Simulated assay, not measured.
Amino acid sequence: MKSNLQPKKRFLVVAFSCTILLVSLTPVVAKPTLGSLPSDDYGGLRLRADVKTNLAQATAFNEPTIPSGPAPAGRVRGGAKRGPTCPGTVTKPDLTALVPFSEEPNSVTNVWGQTTVEHPSWFFYVPYTKDLPYEVEFVLQDQDSNDIYQKAIALPDKAGVIRVSLPTNAPALALNKQYRWFLTVNCDQQENSSLIFVGGVIQRIELKPAALKELQTTEPLKRYAIYAQNGIWYEALTTLAQLRDQNPKDAALQAEWENLLSSIHLNDIAAEPIISEKP
């Protein structure tokens, strides 16, 4: 699908529209104690009863410092009070990117997170369903605003959280470079003003050797804690989503998911279902 929004225009939309999101955010900094997490064999994907009681308090996301240089301005909500909103979302949260965000004194909203993998995944809350005639597209750009990946996104059967993954045949993210991403929704193909979007910046980094070694020898729940402790948002979220997909009735994992999203002030999305954990 060819987007109506050209690469340079996408960048300008983000720069000018990010001022409409007025959210006050205090970064949540916590240091989880990895030793307190369950040591059971997570191959069976079961948690002990005592672990379930304390799991939601065991881990919180340790938000890293915004990198120096141009602000990673973006937009975490697709429909703001003074911006366009697609029909069909009157009683639902707006289109939302599941990613940390913070507002600067000059009203610029930073939407930024770190990954350690070449082909990461993004998660979005989408309030629109497949019965609506909307065009949805995910776009990834390099530091020069060149599109390096585009994908038409099929709307789900019901409102909820979807996953968009960068496929292995797409260009890999280079270390220490920033990339800009967008998810756009075109409510009316005849009117560009009906296009709403979320967008932000992702940067691939390397973990410290000690954390990397621990990741290679531990079970998924502890891997999630290591990622969260080291401020690696994308792998923390993806790991926890995969655990929930394999354990859909596990109340402890649901509580941990809600705790993670609430820690970045996305409380209204925390209880929304994950529609499909498949890439």
Rank of each mutant, 00 (worst) to 15 (best):
G113F: 13
A80L: 15
S68I: 06
P133Y: 09
I66P: 00
V117H: 09
Y125F: 14
L95N: 01
F123T: 08
G78L: 12
Y134N: 00
K81A: 15
V76T: 11
P100L: 08
V108Y: 11
G69R: 06
E135C: 08
V76I: 07
F101S: 10
A80Q: 14
T129A: 12
C86W: 02
P127F: 02
L132P: 00
C86A: 10
T96L: 07
L98G: 02
S68M: 09
T115C: 06
F138H: 04
E137I: 10
K81D: 15
Y134G: 00
G113C: 12
V108P: 04
A71N: 09
E104Y: 13
P105R: 08
R75F: 07
N110F: 05
V136Y: 01
V76C: 09
G83K: 05
H119W: 15
Y134V: 02
F101G: 06
E135D: 13
V117W: 07
T129Q: 10
F138A: 10
P105V: 09
K92G: 03
N110D: 12
K81P: 04
P133C: 06
A73N: 05
G83I: 05
V139Y: 06
K81L: 15
V99H: 02
S68D: 09
D94Q: 10
P127N: 02
V117G: 08
R82F: 15
V139D: 03
E137M: 11
Y125E: 00
Y128A: 05
S68V: 08
L95D: 01
Y134P: 00
T85W: 15
F101T: 06
K92R: 11
E103Y: 04
Y128G: 01
P70K: 14
E137K: 08
T65M: 10
T85H: 14
E104Q: 15
L95I: 06
P93C: 10
E104D: 13
F101P: 00
V90L: 12
F101K: 03
Q114L: 15
P67K: 01
K92A: 09
W122S: 03
R77H: 12
S107M: 11
C86H: 03
E104K: 14
P72I: 06
V111M: 02
V90C: 06
L95P: 01
F124C: 05
P84G: 06
V108S: 10
P72C: 04
T85P: 01
P127H: 01
V136I: 05
P100K: 04
N110Y: 08
P93K: 05
K130V: 04
N106P: 02
S68F: 08
A73R: 06
T91G: 12
L132N: 02
P127C: 01
K92D: 08
G88P: 01
K130D: 11
W122L: 07
T65D: 09
R75W: 09
R77T: 10
A80V: 14
D131Y: 02
